[in-house]
Simulated assay, not measured.
Amino acid sequence: MTAPLDRIRFPVLSGDIGGTNARFALTANETAKTERIPTIATTDFATIDDAIEAAIGDRPPGERPKTAILALAGPITGDRVKITNNDWAAEPKKMIARFGMTDVILLNDFEALSLSLPGLGPGDVDAIGGGEARPEGARVVVGPGTGLGTGALIHAGGRWVPIPGEGGHVDLGPVSPRDFEIWPNLEQTFGRMSVETLVCGSGMLRLYRGICATNGVEATLANEADVAARGLAGDDPQAVETLDLFATYLGRYAGDLALIFSAWGGVYLAGGISTRIAPALKSGAFREAFLAKEPHRHLMERMATAIIIKEDAALAGIGDFARAPSRFGVELNGRWWQA
């Protein structure tokens, strides 16, 4: 077992490393304002260590980070952690040796996002439908992006305990008559249909192509950004249906998680796709799919759903943890490396 972490050594380098982008911030001490470092494209550097070197720059020794807390897309296992959806791998022992750090802590990316949830204010979220979040209720965060991230946060023993996982890879099946029409024309991933197969950036394009094939029309849109734009504009019927079903499938999944965790603290949607297609998510399809959990619809109606609009929420969650680690019950066994 790893000893409890009561205080973290500053300066702290926070990192939110996804499949496409790496976001970094540096905090000098517990009371200092966090310095946001410009976003780095993961394709611009061969390794995560090279990206960290660029993020730190030529700072003098006293300003260089003593601790790195990095949130990675994917499960945290072993001394070499492969990052999902890009070619990087994090090796904390090598980071400590290269950068002279004392500590490296690795978290799942949506675990870091879940750490931000207690600190979100009314101006940090955009509500979808009704429901009310209880202050100490369990919370869930879901985010379609390069993949589909999922995390939960439970309040127990006076602390917030994050629950990381790879829930986006659970199975997704057809429910409505329209689903059964479309399903034979959908491209699978890894020989199966997971939620992430359809509810992510590339999944939106798969869904659009499946709808076009079902309708017997040519799929003229080449990427998910065009599908989202045309769907929001309302000038392409297939793109419009794509956004409607994307919201529906995301709502079903979010509702399943809300039932599993009894998410009285709310279910929160994160990431660029959620904010970009917010009008589609607020049009009714997402919330109705979330609620349609008979015989427990009456329970679902009392649960809040919202889109996180706070910028860099995962970095904020890491910052909250760094400043007051004892407030959180973060599991550090096998995830905390020391010099």
Rank of each mutant, 00 (worst) to 15 (best):
M1A: 14
P4D: 12
D6C: 08
R7L: 14
F10C: 10
V12R: 03
D16S: 08
G19D: 04
N21Q: 13
A22Y: 03
R23F: 07
F24K: 11
F24N: 12
L26S: 08
T27I: 11
E30P: 06
T31E: 15
A32M: 12
T34G: 12
T39L: 13
T42E: 06
A46V: 13
A46R: 15
T47R: 09
D50P: 04
D50C: 06
A51H: 05
G57A: 10
G57Q: 13
D58W: 11
G62E: 09
K66Q: 15
A73F: 09
P75S: 09
I83Y: 01
T84N: 14
N85W: 08
N86K: 04
D87W: 12
E91Y: 06
E91D: 09
K93Y: 10
K93A: 14
A97P: 11
G100D: 07
T102D: 15
V104R: 02
I105C: 03
D109P: 09
F110E: 09
E111Y: 07
E111T: 06
E111A: 06
S114R: 05
S116R: 05
S116M: 05
P118A: 07
G119D: 15
G119Q: 14
G121Y: 00
G121A: 02
P122V: 01
G123C: 01
D124L: 01
D126Q: 13
A127T: 12
G130H: 14
G130S: 15
G131K: 00
A133T: 02
E136M: 10
G137K: 02
V140M: 02
V141T: 05
A156E: 15
P162N: 10
I163P: 00
I163A: 08
E166H: 12
G167P: 03
L172H: 05
S176D: 15
P177F: 07
L186W: 02
L186Q: 00
L186S: 04
F190C: 12
G191V: 13
R192C: 05
L198I: 04
C200Q: 08
L207M: 05
T214P: 04
G216W: 04
A219P: 07
A225G: 09
D226H: 11
R230Y: 00
R230L: 02
G231C: 00
A233Q: 05
G234N: 02
G234T: 01
D236L: 05
A239P: 01
A239Y: 02
A239R: 00
E241Y: 08
T242P: 04
D244H: 12
D256N: 15
W264N: 10
G266H: 04
L269S: 00
A270F: 08
S274K: 01
T275R: 12
R276W: 07
A280L: 09
S283I: 09
R287F: 07
A289Q: 03
A289F: 02
F290S: 03
A292W: 10
E294G: 13
H298S: 15
M300E: 14
A304W: 04
A306H: 03
A313M: 10
G317E: 01
D320T: 08
D320L: 13
P325N: 06
S326P: 07
S326F: 10
L332S: 01
N333Y: 12
G334W: 11
R335Y: 06
W336T: 07
Q338T: 15
